[in-house]
Nucleic acid binder design. Structure first.
Lengths: 219, 219
DNA sequence: ACAAATTTTTAGCTTTGTCTAAAATTAATT
DNA sequence: AATTAATTTTAGACAAAGCTAAAAATTTGT
Protein backbone atom coordinates (compact mmCIF):
# COMPACT_ATOMS: atom_id res chain seq x y z
CA UNK A 1 0.00 0.00 0.00
CA UNK A 2 1.62 3.25 -1.15
CA UNK A 3 1.25 6.68 0.46
CA UNK A 4 -0.74 7.80 -2.52
CA UNK A 5 -3.18 4.91 -2.30
CA UNK A 6 -3.67 5.61 1.39
CA UNK A 7 -4.38 9.26 0.70
CA UNK A 8 -7.00 8.35 -1.85
CA UNK A 9 -8.75 5.96 0.55
CA UNK A 10 -8.80 8.60 3.25
CA UNK A 11 -10.23 11.21 0.90
CA UNK A 12 -12.89 8.85 -0.44
CA UNK A 13 -13.86 7.99 3.13
CA UNK A 14 -14.29 11.63 4.13
CA UNK A 15 -16.22 12.59 1.00
CA UNK A 16 -18.41 9.52 1.42
CA UNK A 17 -19.37 10.60 4.97
CA UNK A 18 -20.85 13.91 3.89
CA UNK A 19 -22.73 13.66 0.60
CA UNK A 20 -24.23 10.16 0.68
CA UNK A 21 -24.00 7.84 -2.31
CA UNK A 22 -20.90 7.18 -4.39
CA UNK A 23 -18.18 9.81 -4.60
CA UNK A 24 -17.51 11.53 -7.91
CA UNK A 25 -14.17 11.56 -9.68
CA UNK A 26 -14.27 15.34 -9.84
CA UNK A 27 -14.90 15.71 -6.12
CA UNK A 28 -11.88 13.56 -5.32
CA UNK A 29 -9.71 15.48 -7.76
CA UNK A 30 -10.73 18.81 -6.29
CA UNK A 31 -10.21 17.68 -2.70
CA UNK A 32 -6.77 16.26 -3.47
CA UNK A 33 -5.72 19.10 -5.74
CA UNK A 34 -5.07 16.81 -8.66
CA UNK A 35 -6.66 16.13 -12.05
CA UNK A 36 -9.74 13.98 -12.68
CA UNK A 37 -7.79 11.83 -15.11
CA UNK A 38 -5.29 10.96 -12.40
CA UNK A 39 -8.16 10.02 -10.11
CA UNK A 40 -9.58 7.67 -12.69
CA UNK A 41 -6.25 5.89 -12.99
CA UNK A 42 -5.86 5.45 -9.26
CA UNK A 43 -9.44 4.43 -8.69
CA UNK A 44 -9.02 1.64 -11.21
CA UNK A 45 -6.03 0.38 -9.32
CA UNK A 46 -7.84 0.51 -5.99
CA UNK A 47 -10.73 -1.32 -7.58
CA UNK A 48 -8.41 -4.06 -8.85
CA UNK A 49 -7.14 -4.43 -5.29
CA UNK A 50 -10.67 -4.78 -3.94
CA UNK A 51 -10.57 -1.61 -1.88
CA UNK A 52 -13.26 0.35 -3.71
CA UNK A 53 -16.37 -0.34 -5.76
CA UNK A 54 -16.08 1.35 -9.09
CA UNK A 55 -18.05 1.34 -12.32
CA UNK A 56 -17.15 3.71 -15.11
CA UNK A 57 -18.95 7.04 -14.90
CA UNK A 58 -20.79 5.86 -11.76
CA UNK A 59 -18.53 7.13 -8.99
CA UNK A 60 -16.65 5.34 -6.23
CA UNK A 61 -17.43 3.89 -2.82
CA UNK A 62 -15.29 2.00 -0.31
CA UNK A 63 -15.59 -1.76 0.11
CA UNK A 64 -15.58 -3.15 3.66
CA UNK A 65 -11.83 -3.79 3.34
CA UNK A 66 -11.31 -0.27 1.97
CA UNK A 67 -13.29 1.22 4.84
CA UNK A 68 -11.26 -0.69 7.40
CA UNK A 69 -8.05 0.49 5.78
CA UNK A 70 -9.23 4.11 5.65
CA UNK A 71 -10.19 4.00 9.32
CA UNK A 72 -6.81 2.66 10.30
CA UNK A 73 -5.14 5.57 8.51
CA UNK A 74 -7.47 8.05 10.16
CA UNK A 75 -6.75 6.43 13.52
CA UNK A 76 -3.04 6.93 12.96
CA UNK A 77 -3.47 10.51 11.80
CA UNK A 78 -5.52 11.49 14.83
CA UNK A 79 -3.34 9.71 17.36
CA UNK A 80 -0.30 11.50 15.97
CA UNK A 81 -2.18 14.79 16.23
CA UNK A 82 -2.80 14.13 19.90
CA UNK A 83 0.87 13.27 20.36
CA UNK A 84 2.01 16.45 18.67
CA UNK A 85 -0.22 18.64 20.81
CA UNK A 86 0.09 16.87 24.15
CA UNK A 87 3.74 15.78 24.07
CA UNK A 88 5.45 18.15 21.66
CA UNK A 89 3.43 21.32 22.33
CA UNK A 90 2.33 21.92 18.77
CA UNK A 91 -0.54 24.34 18.29
CA UNK A 92 -3.78 23.35 16.57
CA UNK A 93 -2.83 24.85 13.26
CA UNK A 94 0.58 23.16 13.09
CA UNK A 95 -0.39 19.53 13.58
CA UNK A 96 -2.15 18.67 10.36
CA UNK A 97 0.76 18.92 7.93
CA UNK A 98 3.04 16.78 10.07
CA UNK A 99 0.33 14.24 10.89
CA UNK A 100 -0.23 13.85 7.14
CA UNK A 101 3.28 12.48 6.96
CA UNK A 102 3.28 10.45 10.16
CA UNK A 103 0.03 8.65 9.32
CA UNK A 104 1.86 6.63 6.66
CA UNK A 105 4.42 5.06 8.98
CA UNK A 106 3.95 1.32 8.95
CA UNK A 107 4.19 -0.38 12.33
CA UNK A 108 1.37 -1.92 14.28
CA UNK A 109 3.32 -1.83 17.51
CA UNK A 110 4.15 1.83 17.02
CA UNK A 111 0.50 2.82 16.99
CA UNK A 112 -0.53 0.53 19.83
CA UNK A 113 2.21 1.89 22.06
CA UNK A 114 1.51 5.47 21.04
CA UNK A 115 -2.12 4.92 21.97
CA UNK A 116 -1.00 3.72 25.38
CA UNK A 117 1.48 6.59 25.88
CA UNK A 118 -1.35 9.03 25.20
CA UNK A 119 -3.64 7.11 27.56
CA UNK A 120 -6.07 5.93 24.90
CA UNK A 121 -7.55 9.25 23.82
CA UNK A 122 -11.02 9.16 22.28
CA UNK A 123 -10.81 12.47 20.43
CA UNK A 124 -8.15 14.35 18.53
CA UNK A 125 -7.27 18.02 19.13
CA UNK A 126 -9.99 19.14 16.70
CA UNK A 127 -12.60 17.16 18.64
CA UNK A 128 -12.87 14.45 15.98
CA UNK A 129 -13.25 10.88 17.24
CA UNK A 130 -10.32 8.44 17.05
CA UNK A 131 -11.34 5.05 15.65
CA UNK A 132 -10.39 1.99 17.71
CA UNK A 133 -8.15 -0.77 16.37
CA UNK A 134 -11.30 -2.51 15.15
CA UNK A 135 -12.50 0.55 13.29
CA UNK A 136 -15.27 1.57 15.68
CA UNK A 137 -15.68 5.15 16.76
CA UNK A 138 -18.16 7.08 18.84
CA UNK A 139 -19.51 10.34 17.55
CA UNK A 140 -19.20 12.87 20.35
CA UNK A 141 -22.29 14.68 21.62
CA UNK A 142 -20.84 17.96 20.57
CA UNK A 143 -22.77 21.08 19.54
CA UNK A 144 -21.85 24.33 17.93
CA UNK A 145 -21.46 27.13 20.46
CA UNK A 146 -23.73 29.27 18.31
CA UNK A 147 -26.61 26.83 18.77
CA UNK A 148 -26.68 26.93 22.55
CA UNK A 149 -28.80 29.18 24.76
CA UNK A 150 -27.55 31.85 27.12
CA UNK A 151 -25.94 30.74 30.39
CA UNK A 152 -25.04 27.32 29.03
CA UNK A 153 -21.73 25.97 30.24
CA UNK A 154 -19.63 23.46 28.30
CA UNK A 155 -16.21 22.19 27.51
CA UNK A 156 -14.57 23.15 24.26
CA UNK A 157 -14.12 19.89 22.32
CA UNK A 158 -13.36 20.86 18.75
CA UNK A 159 -13.73 23.06 15.72
CA UNK A 160 -15.80 22.88 12.57
CA UNK A 161 -13.52 25.02 10.43
CA UNK A 162 -9.99 23.76 10.89
CA UNK A 163 -8.29 26.29 8.62
CA UNK A 164 -4.95 27.66 9.73
CA UNK A 165 -6.34 31.17 10.10
CA UNK A 166 -9.12 30.08 12.42
CA UNK A 167 -6.85 27.88 14.54
CA UNK A 168 -4.36 30.71 14.86
CA UNK A 169 -7.13 33.02 15.99
CA UNK A 170 -8.01 30.55 18.74
CA UNK A 171 -4.40 30.24 19.85
CA UNK A 172 -3.98 33.98 20.01
CA UNK A 173 -7.13 34.32 22.07
CA UNK A 174 -6.23 31.48 24.40
CA UNK A 175 -9.15 29.31 23.43
CA UNK A 176 -8.08 25.68 23.61
CA UNK A 177 -9.44 22.17 23.86
CA UNK A 178 -10.71 21.47 27.35
CA UNK A 179 -11.44 25.08 28.27
CA UNK A 180 -14.68 25.68 30.11
CA UNK A 181 -16.84 28.04 28.10
CA UNK A 182 -19.89 29.82 29.46
CA UNK A 183 -22.29 31.88 27.41
CA UNK A 184 -23.00 35.09 29.31
CA UNK A 185 -25.02 37.08 26.83
CA UNK A 186 -25.98 37.28 23.17
CA UNK A 187 -26.22 40.49 21.06
CA UNK A 188 -29.41 40.38 19.05
CA UNK A 189 -28.03 42.73 16.40
CA UNK A 190 -25.28 40.44 15.05
CA UNK A 191 -25.67 37.29 17.17
CA UNK A 192 -22.24 37.89 18.65
CA UNK A 193 -21.64 36.30 22.06
CA UNK A 194 -20.26 37.48 25.36
CA UNK A 195 -18.59 34.44 26.87
CA UNK A 196 -16.20 33.42 29.61
CA UNK A 197 -13.31 31.13 28.69
CA UNK A 198 -11.94 29.57 31.87
CA UNK A 199 -13.21 32.63 33.68
CA UNK A 200 -11.83 35.20 31.21
CA UNK A 201 -14.48 37.40 29.64
CA UNK A 202 -14.45 37.84 25.87
CA UNK A 203 -16.66 38.91 23.01
CA UNK A 204 -16.80 36.75 19.89
CA UNK A 205 -18.64 37.06 16.58
CA UNK A 206 -21.34 34.70 15.37
CA UNK A 207 -18.86 33.47 12.78
CA UNK A 208 -16.51 32.32 15.52
CA UNK A 209 -19.26 30.78 17.63
CA UNK A 210 -20.59 28.77 14.68
CA UNK A 211 -17.24 27.08 14.21
CA UNK A 212 -16.57 26.06 17.80
CA UNK A 213 -17.82 22.73 19.13
CA UNK A 214 -18.74 22.47 22.79
CA UNK A 215 -19.87 19.54 24.89
CA UNK A 216 -22.56 21.08 27.08
CA UNK A 217 -22.32 20.27 30.77
CA UNK A 218 -25.24 18.19 31.98
CA UNK A 219 -26.93 20.23 34.67
CA UNK B 1 14.82 15.86 -1.24
CA UNK B 2 13.22 12.44 -1.72
CA UNK B 3 13.36 9.48 0.67
CA UNK B 4 15.61 7.69 -1.76
CA UNK B 5 18.08 10.55 -2.01
CA UNK B 6 18.21 10.76 1.77
CA UNK B 7 18.92 7.05 2.04
CA UNK B 8 21.79 7.32 -0.41
CA UNK B 9 23.35 10.22 1.48
CA UNK B 10 23.11 8.33 4.74
CA UNK B 11 24.70 5.22 3.25
CA UNK B 12 27.52 7.20 1.64
CA UNK B 13 28.18 8.90 4.96
CA UNK B 14 28.43 5.62 6.85
CA UNK B 15 30.61 3.92 4.24
CA UNK B 16 32.82 7.00 4.10
CA UNK B 17 33.45 6.82 7.88
CA UNK B 18 34.96 3.36 7.77
CA UNK B 19 37.14 2.79 4.71
CA UNK B 20 38.70 6.21 4.08
CA UNK B 21 38.78 7.73 0.61
CA UNK B 22 35.88 7.87 -1.83
CA UNK B 23 33.14 5.27 -1.63
CA UNK B 24 32.72 2.78 -4.48
CA UNK B 25 29.56 2.30 -6.50
CA UNK B 26 29.58 -1.39 -5.72
CA UNK B 27 29.85 -0.85 -1.98
CA UNK B 28 26.83 1.44 -2.03
CA UNK B 29 24.85 -1.02 -4.12
CA UNK B 30 25.65 -3.89 -1.79
CA UNK B 31 24.82 -1.92 1.35
CA UNK B 32 21.52 -0.73 -0.08
CA UNK B 33 20.61 -4.04 -1.68
CA UNK B 34 20.27 -2.52 -5.11
CA UNK B 35 22.18 -2.67 -8.41
CA UNK B 36 25.35 -0.74 -9.25
CA UNK B 37 23.68 0.78 -12.29
CA UNK B 38 20.96 2.27 -10.10
CA UNK B 39 23.63 3.73 -7.86
CA UNK B 40 25.35 5.38 -10.79
CA UNK B 41 22.08 7.03 -11.82
CA UNK B 42 21.35 8.36 -8.35
CA UNK B 43 24.89 9.49 -7.72
CA UNK B 44 24.76 11.60 -10.87
CA UNK B 45 21.64 13.27 -9.62
CA UNK B 46 23.13 13.94 -6.20
CA UNK B 47 26.20 15.34 -7.91
CA UNK B 48 24.07 17.70 -10.01
CA UNK B 49 22.49 18.91 -6.78
CA UNK B 50 25.88 19.59 -5.23
CA UNK B 51 25.52 16.99 -2.49
CA UNK B 52 28.34 14.66 -3.55
CA UNK B 53 31.64 14.84 -5.41
CA UNK B 54 31.62 12.38 -8.25
CA UNK B 55 33.88 11.59 -11.17
CA UNK B 56 33.21 8.61 -13.38
CA UNK B 57 34.89 5.43 -12.17
CA UNK B 58 36.47 7.35 -9.26
CA UNK B 59 33.93 6.79 -6.50
CA UNK B 60 31.84 9.21 -4.45
CA UNK B 61 32.33 11.46 -1.44
CA UNK B 62 30.02 13.89 0.32
CA UNK B 63 30.35 17.64 -0.15
CA UNK B 64 30.03 19.85 2.95
CA UNK B 65 26.37 20.37 2.14
CA UNK B 66 25.89 16.64 1.61
CA UNK B 67 27.56 15.88 4.93
CA UNK B 68 25.36 18.35 6.75
CA UNK B 69 22.28 16.81 5.18
CA UNK B 70 23.38 13.27 6.03
CA UNK B 71 24.03 14.26 9.64
CA UNK B 72 20.59 15.78 9.95
CA UNK B 73 19.04 12.51 8.77
CA UNK B 74 21.18 10.50 11.17
CA UNK B 75 20.17 12.88 13.95
CA UNK B 76 16.53 12.24 13.21
CA UNK B 77 17.03 8.48 12.98
CA UNK B 78 18.78 8.27 16.33
CA UNK B 79 16.39 10.59 18.15
CA UNK B 80 13.47 8.49 16.96
CA UNK B 81 15.27 5.36 18.17
CA UNK B 82 15.58 6.88 21.62
CA UNK B 83 11.91 7.79 21.53
CA UNK B 84 10.88 4.29 20.55
CA UNK B 85 12.88 2.69 23.34
CA UNK B 86 12.28 5.19 26.12
CA UNK B 87 8.70 6.20 25.47
CA UNK B 88 7.17 3.31 23.54
CA UNK B 89 9.07 0.40 25.11
CA UNK B 90 10.49 -1.02 21.92
CA UNK B 91 13.39 -3.43 22.29
CA UNK B 92 16.78 -2.85 20.67
CA UNK B 93 16.10 -5.12 17.75
CA UNK B 94 12.74 -3.54 16.90
CA UNK B 95 13.69 0.11 16.58
CA UNK B 96 15.74 0.20 13.41
CA UNK B 97 13.06 -0.64 10.87
CA UNK B 98 10.60 1.92 12.22
CA UNK B 99 13.27 4.61 12.65
CA UNK B 100 14.17 4.10 8.98
CA UNK B 101 10.70 5.35 8.16
CA UNK B 102 10.45 8.08 10.78
CA UNK B 103 13.77 9.66 9.81
CA UNK B 104 12.22 10.97 6.60
CA UNK B 105 9.46 13.02 8.23
CA UNK B 106 9.97 16.65 7.36
CA UNK B 107 9.45 19.10 10.21
CA UNK B 108 12.11 21.08 11.97
CA UNK B 109 9.88 21.75 14.94
CA UNK B 110 9.04 18.06 15.27
CA UNK B 111 12.69 17.13 15.80
CA UNK B 112 13.48 20.05 18.08
CA UNK B 113 10.53 19.22 20.31
CA UNK B 114 11.27 15.53 20.26
CA UNK B 115 14.82 16.31 21.34
CA UNK B 116 13.41 18.28 24.26
CA UNK B 117 10.87 15.60 25.21
CA UNK B 118 13.72 13.09 25.40
CA UNK B 119 15.82 15.54 27.43
CA UNK B 120 18.48 16.07 24.78
CA UNK B 121 20.02 12.61 24.67
CA UNK B 122 23.62 12.36 23.48
CA UNK B 123 23.54 8.70 22.45
CA UNK B 124 21.04 6.40 20.83
CA UNK B 125 20.05 2.97 22.21
CA UNK B 126 22.95 1.34 20.38
CA UNK B 127 25.42 3.73 22.00
CA UNK B 128 25.96 5.74 18.82
CA UNK B 129 26.25 9.50 19.23
CA UNK B 130 23.39 11.79 18.19
CA UNK B 131 24.58 14.77 16.12
CA UNK B 132 23.48 18.22 17.30
CA UNK B 133 21.41 20.56 15.14
CA UNK B 134 24.67 21.98 13.83
CA UNK B 135 26.01 18.59 12.87
CA UNK B 136 28.54 18.19 15.67
CA UNK B 137 28.80 14.98 17.61
CA UNK B 138 31.05 13.62 20.30
CA UNK B 139 32.48 10.15 19.97
CA UNK B 140 31.91 8.39 23.26
CA UNK B 141 34.85 6.98 25.19
CA UNK B 142 33.50 3.50 24.78
CA UNK B 143 35.53 0.29 24.65
CA UNK B 144 34.75 -3.28 23.73
CA UNK B 145 34.12 -5.42 26.78
CA UNK B 146 36.59 -7.96 25.37
CA UNK B 147 39.42 -5.42 25.50
CA UNK B 148 39.15 -4.66 29.21
CA UNK B 149 41.08 -6.31 32.02
CA UNK B 150 39.66 -8.43 34.83
CA UNK B 151 37.79 -6.64 37.60
CA UNK B 152 37.00 -3.63 35.45
CA UNK B 153 33.57 -2.10 36.04
CA UNK B 154 31.68 -0.14 33.41
CA UNK B 155 28.31 0.86 32.09
CA UNK B 156 26.95 -0.83 29.01
CA UNK B 157 26.67 1.90 26.37
CA UNK B 158 26.21 0.15 23.06
CA UNK B 159 26.81 -2.67 20.64
CA UNK B 160 29.12 -3.15 17.70
CA UNK B 161 27.06 -5.77 15.91
CA UNK B 162 23.50 -4.50 15.77
CA UNK B 163 21.98 -7.49 14.00
CA UNK B 164 18.55 -8.62 15.13
CA UNK B 165 19.89 -11.95 16.38
CA UNK B 166 22.47 -10.32 18.63
CA UNK B 167 20.06 -7.74 19.99
CA UNK B 168 17.53 -10.45 20.72
CA UNK B 169 20.19 -12.41 22.57
CA UNK B 170 20.84 -9.38 24.76
CA UNK B 171 17.17 -8.88 25.46
CA UNK B 172 16.71 -12.51 26.44
CA UNK B 173 19.68 -12.33 28.77
CA UNK B 174 18.60 -9.06 30.33
CA UNK B 175 21.61 -7.11 29.13
CA UNK B 176 20.53 -3.55 28.41
CA UNK B 177 21.86 -0.06 27.98
CA UNK B 178 22.85 1.44 31.32
CA UNK B 179 23.50 -1.89 33.07
CA UNK B 180 26.57 -2.00 35.27
CA UNK B 181 28.89 -4.72 34.01
CA UNK B 182 31.80 -6.07 36.00
CA UNK B 183 34.39 -8.50 34.66
CA UNK B 184 34.92 -11.20 37.30
CA UNK B 185 37.16 -13.66 35.50
CA UNK B 186 38.42 -14.66 32.07
CA UNK B 187 38.85 -18.25 30.76
CA UNK B 188 42.20 -18.52 29.05
CA UNK B 189 41.03 -21.42 26.90
CA UNK B 190 38.41 -19.54 24.84
CA UNK B 191 38.60 -15.98 26.20
CA UNK B 192 35.07 -16.30 27.50
CA UNK B 193 34.19 -14.01 30.39
CA UNK B 194 32.52 -14.44 33.75
CA UNK B 195 30.73 -11.18 34.40
CA UNK B 196 28.12 -9.62 36.65
CA UNK B 197 25.33 -7.65 34.99
CA UNK B 198 23.68 -5.44 37.62
CA UNK B 199 24.80 -8.00 40.17
CA UNK B 200 23.63 -11.08 38.24
CA UNK B 201 26.41 -13.53 37.41
CA UNK B 202 26.70 -14.81 33.86
CA UNK B 203 29.15 -16.44 31.52
CA UNK B 204 29.53 -15.02 28.01
CA UNK B 205 31.63 -16.03 25.00
CA UNK B 206 34.42 -13.94 23.51
CA UNK B 207 32.18 -13.37 20.52
CA UNK B 208 29.59 -11.68 22.73
CA UNK B 209 32.18 -9.67 24.65
CA UNK B 210 33.74 -8.35 21.48
CA UNK B 211 30.44 -6.86 20.35
CA UNK B 212 29.48 -5.08 23.56
CA UNK B 213 30.61 -1.53 24.21
CA UNK B 214 31.22 -0.42 27.78
CA UNK B 215 32.17 2.92 29.25
CA UNK B 216 34.68 1.98 31.95
CA UNK B 217 34.11 3.59 35.33
CA UNK B 218 36.88 5.97 36.29
CA UNK B 219 38.32 4.62 39.50
C1' DA C 1 -36.34 15.05 -26.71
C1' DC C 2 -32.29 16.60 -28.27
C1' DA C 3 -28.54 19.85 -28.41
C1' DA C 4 -25.33 21.98 -25.13
C1' DA C 5 -22.71 21.74 -21.11
C1' DT C 6 -20.49 19.07 -17.83
C1' DT C 7 -18.23 15.12 -16.20
C1' DT C 8 -15.43 11.18 -16.89
C1' DT C 9 -12.43 8.37 -19.41
C1' DT C 10 -8.86 7.28 -22.74
C1' DA C 11 -4.48 7.81 -25.02
C1' DG C 12 -0.09 9.25 -24.99
C1' DC C 13 3.73 11.65 -22.62
C1' DT C 14 6.78 12.88 -18.33
C1' DT C 15 9.41 11.97 -14.18
C1' DT C 16 11.47 9.12 -10.56
C1' DG C 17 13.71 5.21 -9.35
C1' DT C 18 14.67 0.89 -10.58
C1' DC C 19 16.25 -3.09 -13.63
C1' DT C 20 18.91 -6.02 -17.41
C1' DA C 21 22.26 -6.54 -20.71
C1' DA C 22 26.00 -4.82 -23.03
C1' DA C 23 29.95 -1.68 -23.42
C1' DA C 24 33.75 0.81 -21.28
C1' DT C 25 37.12 1.40 -17.84
C1' DT C 26 40.16 0.05 -14.15
C1' DA C 27 42.50 -3.61 -11.52
C1' DA C 28 44.78 -8.03 -11.17
C1' DT C 29 47.58 -11.89 -12.64
C1' DT C 30 50.59 -14.34 -14.88
C1' DA D 1 53.09 -5.91 -20.56
C1' DA D 2 49.24 -8.23 -22.07
C1' DT D 3 45.34 -10.62 -21.11
C1' DT D 4 41.87 -11.85 -17.77
C1' DA D 5 38.86 -10.40 -14.23
C1' DA D 6 36.32 -7.19 -11.80
C1' DT D 7 34.07 -2.89 -11.54
C1' DT D 8 31.52 0.85 -13.40
C1' DT D 9 28.85 3.11 -16.81
C1' DT D 10 25.64 3.41 -20.71
C1' DA D 11 21.53 2.30 -23.20
C1' DG D 12 17.08 0.87 -23.28
C1' DA D 13 12.92 -0.78 -20.64
C1' DC D 14 9.51 -0.78 -16.96
C1' DA D 15 6.20 0.46 -13.15
C1' DA D 16 4.15 4.18 -10.37
C1' DA D 17 1.92 8.41 -10.31
C1' DG D 18 0.93 12.29 -12.45
C1' DC D 19 -0.24 15.54 -16.54
C1' DT D 20 -2.51 17.36 -21.19
C1' DA D 21 -5.56 17.07 -24.78
C1' DA D 22 -9.08 14.80 -27.00
C1' DA D 23 -12.92 11.42 -27.05
C1' DA D 24 -16.94 9.33 -24.79
C1' DA D 25 -20.71 9.25 -21.60
C1' DT D 26 -23.86 11.56 -18.73
C1' DT D 27 -26.57 15.34 -17.25
C1' DT D 28 -29.00 19.61 -18.08
C1' DG D 29 -31.79 23.16 -20.31
C1' DT D 30 -35.09 24.60 -23.12
Amino acid sequence: MTHSEENYLKTIFHLGRNGKGPVSTNAIAEQMETKPSSVTDMVKKLSDKGLVNYKKYQGVSLTPVGTKTALSIIRKHRLWEVFLVKKLHFTWDEVHEVAEQLEHIKSEKLIDQLDELLEFPKFDPHGDPIPTKNGEFTEPKKQLLSQLPISTQGVCVGVKDSSATFLKFLDRNKIALGNLIEIMDKEEFDDSLHIKVDGEKMHISHQIASNLYVKPNEL
